[in-house]
Design a protein around this nucleic acid. Structure first.
Lengths: 191, 191
DNA sequence: ATACTTTCTTAATCTAGGTTAAGTGCTAAA
DNA sequence: TTTAGCACTTAACCTAGATTAAGAAAGTAT
């Protein structure tokens, strides 16, 4: 059974016909590391589901500084939510960090599926709710916790990714410079 | 027509029977300023929709420091999303800042309505999506913008609330101490 | 292998914002 | 109408994390 079906069935149950219908509306693509799946300024036309490999989303502000919004590895969804729902150009990049197999679900197909299989509307509602909770927690963490504790939470959230992602990207995710992150790690080792 | 129906109809259209059914599952309550609608450690059993007045949600970390997650005024929804979806004790407080008229929709009624009026599942999916986008933007802002610019974005997001909310709470929302916020405002005036 | 590029580290110096503390002014209860 | 308690301000001093710069390590391409 494809991973994406298991993922859906964590929240809603599908019949065999529904599974087939769903899968018929998706495409599987393979991407090499460093491929850009979505560029800033483009309209995001797909939701991405990661079968294997690692993706990240980030933006670049005036100063040429990258800021990582999040990572996605096996079993995670990825997309530029703003662009996806508004179908306007977004400001996120989505990039492949490690060679990846990705399931693509187009915006149109996703909307169609909502009508054909209302349970999927429920699934994506729940998925979005969970994502919202995680993002609210991250906001509170960024307001109240030190960089050290935020790193600790990164390690728990993305268990196993620590050594697969360039440090500068982890630094960006927790909201510090690569230099400070390096210093902080050295300090943690000394303990 | 009640404000909450208009709010829903921005995204999905309801028949008169559906409107009635929906309203029959809600309750209107009036609260005085400083009333605590939800305490940290409690299970959140309702979604709140603000007809008038102002609410805020916040948590308190180890050090007795409050951190404001968000505000809600006329036409906004409020709740402890984590506790609401998990029905486990949350760590948010929800408090009335200005005397408020609030529509309460219980978790059970909300779930029932999803089945009775699937369009409402769509409505809450869209509502949650929009909230997620706003929260993602706030994360990026906190990573990359100065306190001054974050204050500017607060002013735009909560237009009109600037003088109705204690400064220390605005400071907390944008992620600085009341002392620094005071200093920053004085500096902005001098310009 | 060699050169080129990017990541990571270390260290000196700097700054946005935090902490502490004291004082002002407003509101609310007695 | 006093007094107690917040909310806000100001100012001196402090620190987590930024910036700048330079070298070491590790990939990547030729």
């Amino acid at each position: 059974m494809p991973l994406i079906i298991d993922n859906i069935q964590k929240h809603v149950q599908l019949t065999d016909e529904e599974k087939e219908l769903f899968l018929s509306k998706t495409e599987i693509h393979h991407y090499k590391a460093k491929t850009i799946l979505l560029n800033s300024g483009e309209v995001c036309k797909h939701s991405y589901f990661v079968n294997s490999g690692i993706l990240r989303s980030f933006n670049i502000n005036d100063n040429i500084v990258e800021h990582v919004l999040n990572f996605a590895c096996e079993g995670w969804w990825m997309g530029d939510m703003y662009s996806l729902i508004s179908q306007k150009p977004g400001n996120l990049f989505i990039e492949v960090i490690e060679d990846a197999e990705v399931v693509l679900l187009s915006k149109e197909n996703q909307e169609q599926l909502y009508s054909e299989i209302p349970k999927l509307e429920r699934f994506f509602r729940i998925l979005t709710e969970n994502s919202l909770v995680a993002n609210q927690e991250r906001i509170m963490d960024n307001l109240s916790l030190s960089a050290e504790v935020r790193y600790d939470k990164f390690l728990k959230r993305y268990a196993g990714l620590n050594h697969k992602i360039p440090q500068k990207q982890i630094a960006s995710y927790i909201g510090v410079t690569p230099e400070f992150f390096s210093k902080m790690k050295a300090k943690l080792l000394r303990k």
